[in-house]
Simulated assay, not measured.
Amino acid sequence: MDLAPDSATVRGLIFNAVFKLVKQHHGDAASNELRATVSKKPLVDFFSYSARDFLQVLYQAAELLAPQYGSHESAIRACGAAAVGGFFDSGVGRTLTHIIGKGDPKRLFSSAPTAYSTTVSYGQREYALLGERKLRLRFTGDMQPVEFHQGLLEAALQGIGCQGRIEVQRRGLDAADYIIEW
């Protein structure tokens, strides 16, 4: 939480994906109670909200979801997967998948720096191709747990119809490399 400056924001879409995942496992009451920790009203997908609030929501959701997923880390990965799953289910996500095409991770992840910058107001992301079926996304100045991004990136691969793996190389408290192979 200390890494998150007051000015750091996250789009409501990411919050709402976590609320939806909690609802799937624990019902409306638990989801509404979690949302009430940051707002009395529903959050709008494309409005920006405090990243500190999101971290609070994420860790509370992980606490609730850990029994279903086996650990807090796995629950955080599931929240990341839910965030991208909600995106791929949206009209914008379906359009993006159509433009990118199925089975083209290089094309998808080359756009990751731009996609992330439209979703959060902090950090930098860099794309580097490491081989025919391998690439690296480098995140710097990012306060989300690496498990969140790992789950998100795994779900993004699945969203375009690819099987693969994400290796995380931590570079500090707010920096990590995500090596993606398929």
Rank of each mutant, 00 (worst) to 15 (best):
V168Q: 00
Y127Q: 03
G151A: 12
L130H: 00
G161T: 15
L153S: 09
R170D: 07
Q150H: 04
C162W: 09
G161D: 09
M143G: 06
R133K: 05
I160G: 13
P145H: 01
Q144V: 03
G159E: 13
S117W: 08
L157A: 12
Y127G: 01
M143Y: 08
G151P: 07
Y127D: 06
G123L: 11
T140W: 01
A128D: 12
V120L: 15
S121I: 10
Q150A: 15
R170G: 03
F148L: 12
G164Y: 10
G123T: 07
L130E: 05
R165F: 00
M143C: 04
A155T: 13
D142T: 04
Y122K: 05
G164I: 11
G164W: 09
T119G: 10
S121Q: 14
H149P: 06
L137R: 05
Q144P: 05
C162G: 07
V146R: 09
Q158L: 06
Q163V: 05
K134R: 07
T119I: 13
G131S: 08
Q150L: 06
G151I: 13
F139M: 05
G151M: 07
S121P: 12
E132F: 00
M143E: 06
Q169T: 12
G164C: 09
E167H: 01
L130Q: 13
V120T: 15
I166N: 04
R133S: 04
Q150I: 04
S121M: 10
E154N: 08
S117M: 13
A156L: 09
R138I: 00
F139V: 02
L130Y: 01
G123M: 10
Y122P: 09
E154M: 06
T118S: 15
R125K: 14
Y122L: 05
L135G: 02
Q144H: 15
F148K: 01
Y116W: 15
E126T: 03
E132G: 02
Q169G: 03
F139N: 01
Q163Y: 09
P145N: 03
P145D: 05
Y127V: 11
G141D: 03
Q169W: 04
E126A: 14
T119Y: 12
G123Q: 06
E167M: 00
L129A: 09
I166F: 04
F139C: 07
R133I: 02
V146N: 03
Q163D: 14
E132Y: 00
L129I: 04
A128I: 13
V146G: 08
Q144D: 11
L137A: 02
I160S: 08
Q124Y: 13
H149G: 03
Q169Y: 05
R136Y: 03
E126K: 14
I166S: 09
G164K: 08
Q158K: 14
P145I: 01
V168A: 06
R136A: 07
L157R: 10
H149I: 04
V146C: 08
G131F: 04
T140N: 01
V120H: 15
S121H: 11
A128R: 12
S121R: 14
E167Y: 01
G123I: 01
A155Y: 08
